[in-house]
């Protein structure tokens, strides 16, 4: 009987030594580029990392997705080299970075169009104006605007059911900024989900539903949903790679960013990675369902990186609606 106990103890000790033994010769001697941040931008950076690790053997580029906010927190405390963000850095985050002496270079890498969609059985709406979208989503609409008839005279008196990304997401922040005019301000009586595929399911199964999420989720589910155009005053525009890239689809096109720590830009492997990123992003972003920037913008971004231009073009004021990225980068 004691033999069994002894055996368990012996195996435990053996495996402990193996583990401790392997621990000593690891990790520290390999250079790793630490990246975290937005789950929207994650797939793009993962695609770039995949290609980069294919071209440069031995490179280690892991990517986490703790969200734009969580990513900035880790970035500004010096835990990561690069952070992904689906919105510009906020004032308090800039202050946190400054407190810890972390300078950063802000680089736009792609566009994301926000798609406004309904159920395919909805036959009365094809396009909504920004004012109508505001009427639907503003805080005052809570329990007040509950019928399609209230959105536009002539629409049937059917129940209005709303779906949208969770209030912690950068997508929600951008939509409320662009449509309601104030970041984070919206009615509370809508069905939120952090998982956009859940929103797709919800809208696809609900005749009277309307909702919004990233264009990639519409493209992957186009047969189950109906895409609406958005009229911001110059006629109805439907989001597509072309209208998002050219900036015609307004105000629901947003730029996506990576932020590089100034300290990390001194590392040669990180310089190589950023150049690789900006040179190949144009091809790679469409693989994962996003819209590439124009070639000129990528050139401007590379210049910005090579000159180590620090700070945010948005100065912590949040996304600017309808301001061309090119003008901001040229300033």
């Amino acid at each position: 009987m004691p033999g069994s106990v002894r055996r368990v103890v012996r195996w435990g000790l053996v495996s402990l030594f193996v583990v401790v033994g392997t621990a000593c010769g690891s990790a520290a001697d390999v250079q790793t580029i630490f990246i975290d941040g937005s789950s929207t931008v994650g797939p793009i950076t993962q695609a770039v990392a995949e290609e980069f690790q294919g071209s440069f053997r031995g490179a280690r580029v892991p990517v986490g997705v703790s969200g734009s906010g969580g990513g900035f927190h880790k970035f500004c405390t010096g835990e990561t080299d690069i952070t992904n963000a689906s919105r510009p850095i906020r004032k308090i985050e800039i202050e946190l970075c400054a407190e810890n002496g972390i300078g950063f270079v802000e680089l736009p890498i792609a566009f994301d169009g926000l798609a406004v969609v309904t159920n395919p059985d909805n036959d009365f709406v094809a396009c909504l104006t920004v004012e109508e979208l505001q009427r639907i989503w503003e805080p005052a609409a809570e329990r007040a605007v509950t019928s399609w008839a209230q959105v536009r005279p002539g629409f049937p008196d059917e129940e209005l059911l709303l779906y949208g990304p969770g209030v912690d997401s950068g997508t929600y922040d951008y939509f409320t900024t662009a449509i309601v005019g104030e970041e984070g301000a919206s009615r509370g009586d809508f069905t939120p989900s952090e998982d956009d595929n859940v929103l797709v399911q919800g809208i696809a199964g609900d005749r009277n539903a309307i909702g919004f999420f990233g264009l990639a989720y519409f493209t992957a589910n186009s047969e189950a949903l109906k895409l609406l155009g958005v009229n911001s005053g110059d006629g109805c525009v439907t989001p597509s790679p072309e209208t998002v890239n050219s900036g015609v689809y307004q105000p629901l096109s947003r730029p996506l960013f990576i932020y590089v720590s100034l300290l990390s830009t001194e590392r040669e492997d990180i310089q190589t990675f950023i150049r690789f990123y900006l040179e190949n992003a144009g091809l790679l972003v469409s693989d994962v369902g996003y819209v590439a920037l124009t070639d000129e913008l990528y050139v401007l971004a590379i210049e910005r990186f090579e000159n180590r231009v620090t700070g945010s073009v948005y100065a912590g004021e949040g996304a600017m609606i309808g301001v061309a990225l090119e003008d901001l980068l040229r300033e």
């Binding site: 621990a23 690891s26 994650g42 690790q53 892991p62 986490g64």
Partner: peptide
């Protein structure tokens, strides 16, 4: 997820101190 385990890693872990 809270302690920050990563989602995309394309290399084998080579010890207990690795990601």
């Amino acid at each position: 997820i809270t302690i920050g385990a990563l989602t995309y890693i394309a290399f084998d872990p080579n010890g207990p101190m690795d990601l």
